[in-house]
Design a binder for these strands. Structure first.
Lengths: 199, 199
DNA sequence: CATGAACTAACGGACGTTCGTTATCATGTG
DNA sequence: CACATGATAACGAACGTCCGTTAGTTCATG
């Protein structure tokens, strides 16, 4: 997924290992001992790099979210007609969520459990800029619609298909292709294009 | 919300207290001692009613999800034109999520952390029927569209606005009215009506 | 008197964290 | 070049706390 730097510091290796652990089990579900074991050091050694578990978690979040924000907003701000920008955004956003499940899971975990400070931090440092870009795109697509709400709807349409994948397996009418990123993207693009077509 | 039975057993009182605790802090975030304290009994007494914590959690889930399934599927299956049924479903579904945040949080927690057994249980005993109803409505609305994916999209459009509420507070363009159930319902209905209008 | 549900007390284990020590290694000095 | 120095990061061991759970006991109710 990401090219491991040849001269990676221990601190980076800890974060690299901690991100998927936190993404899959949450803050309370991952012990310092588990992280240390995964890195291959003793638990006490973690405290040479981070003052406490909370700091390690925040650094892991920042590590996981790095450059994601820029990637999203760039695709939304790219030139072209609103429809073309919409399609490019949906394609890219879907691919991003498919290729980095840790990012999506960390995000949804924060939405459930994040305290006010963490949520403000994530909102301002990660989502403010790309969300502004999506909102601007939304306004170009349908000037009469609240751009804030339309932006949320656009992102939610994509995300919810990933979010529900583990339970959709057990529901009727499920076909494996419905989990494929390209199928999801096509479905969302079709829905949004028709909803937002100039009248 | 729900009428408390006058002759409620201790078992019911435990579940009643455990549901919001589990909904807000998750399985690992709620100790047996915390539940016992909230009920007003000793931790050991919980084991007179449930063999272990896992069983208590499963019963709490069943308790929280009871009758929700029936409520959802009834609104989706009600008679009328597809458009009218869509509007009624969105209205009712939105109201349901707004008035019972515990249900929504428990659901999203399961989507994140539920193991295969729990997810299958939830899918088959809670969502199979209402999801079928929504899918049927989706097929009536747009026979050319995959009803499974359209049903997911319809639910996701509503849910994502609630899910992101805690972080939207810190994003630009936010106005308080965007958290109101009726505004969310109107937004979603408008979007879906236009997307699914007969060509 | 039998039964079920409450109590008090405690067990064993996992957890976050701290402590004192050791090993590695780049750097400055004779 | 040889060697002391200081910083960094690893280690093993332990502390205090909280957890899920169990055991044994009391007590009210039928």
């Amino acid at each position: 997924m990401s090219i491991p730097a040849p001269s990676s510091t221990t601190k980076d290796r800890i974060l690299e290992v901690a991100v998927p652990l936190f993404a899959s089990a949450g803050f309370d579900g991952v012990s310092m001992r588990a992280i240390a074991t995964a890195v291959g050091i003793q638990p006490a050694s973690l405290y040479n790099h981070f003052p406490d578990k909370q700091a390690l978690y925040l650094n892991a979040m920042a590590y996981a979210f790095a450059d994601k924000a820029r990637g999203i907003s760039e695709t939304a701000r790219a030139p072209g007609s609103p429809e073309a920008r919409l399609h490019r955004f949906i394609d890219r956003f879907t691919a991003l969520m498919a290729e980095d499940p840790d990012f999506r899971r960390l995000l949804q975990r924060e939405l459930l459990d994040g305290d006010e400070n963490r949520l403000r931090l994530v909102a301002q440092q990660v989502f403010r800029e790309p969300f502004g870009a999506i909102s601007a795109l939304a306004q170009d697509l349908d000037p009469e619609c609240d751009p804030h709400m339309l932006a949320i709807s656009m992102a939610g349409l994509v995300l919810f298909h990933f979010e529900t994948a583990p339970v959709r397996r057990f529901l009727p009418g499920m076909r494996v292709e419905q989990d494929s990123p390209s199928v999801i993207a096509e479905h969302v693009k079709r829905l949004l294009s028709r909803a937002l077509a100039r009248v």
